[in-house]
């Protein structure tokens, strides 16, 4: 599978910069000063949800076995290739909301003009131009990342390995006989 957006929750400051950047990327003009007076107003496809003191940015996970694809009665939701993101075809979508019902993350919504369902399209137009998705680019702390899941997993393994070694070293240094000698 191609790259996907991952979140490092420890780094999210809940600034909601990703929300504005997403809405802007999906606006007509793409310019903040003009988008502010567009009708309908631009809509964000990512939402920072509060979980106690922390914030978690959520957007479509582009699931491998996506329930929204299965449930869609008009086959509006689908993938072009097994590698590509899950997309909604506006011409086919009838706005029945079944996809909202089955989405485990609640990241599909009805558009402001009440015509179609909208969700993260992984900024497919931007990615074609070799740039990152708007939310990833806007994130000031790097909490949002566009990476391959293998790289992500590898990164996590390396971090776990480092922590393991640190804890082993710590335990060796603080052996009871060391303490006694000190």
């Amino acid at each position: 599978m191609a790259k996907a957006i991952f979140v490092d929750i420890d780094k999210c400051l809940a600034c909601k910069g990703c929300e504005i950047a997403c809405a802007l990327a999906h606006s007509q003009s793409g310019i903040l000063e003009e988008a502010i007076s567009e009708h309908p107003k631009p809509q964000s496809r990512i939402a920072v949800e509060a979980a106690g003191e922390l914030g978690v940015p959520l957007q479509c996970r582009h699931c491998e076995d996506a329930p929204c694809i299965t449930v869609c009665p008009t086959k509006a939701i689908g993938r072009n290739t097994p590698e590509s993101p899950v997309l909604i075809d506006n011409d086919l979508c009838i706005g029945c909301r079944f996809c909202i019902a089955v989405c485990p993350f609640g990241v599909i919504e009805l558009s402001r003009d009440n015509k179609v369902m909208i969700k993260c399209d992984l900024c497919i137009k931007r990615i074609k131009k070799q740039s990152k998705p708007a939310c990833v680019e806007a994130c000031p702390t790097g909490a949002l990342m566009l990476i391959d899941e293998h790289d992500w997993a590898a990164g996590k393994r390396r971090k776990a390995a480092r922590e393991l070694i640190e804890s082993v070293l710590y335990n060796t240094k603080t052996k009871p006989e060391d303490n006694a000698r000190a």
């Binding site: 504005i20 802007l24 903040l32 964000s44 680019e137 806007a138 000031p140």
Partner: peptide, 29 residues
Amino acid sequence: LPQCGFGKLGVCCRICAMGPCRISPFGEG
């Protein structure tokens, strides 16, 4: 870049400790 949209649009308030608060410029929040 990109600079904060809330700041650019003037809808971020840091005046008291109940905040910081910000108003969603596109009317979603």
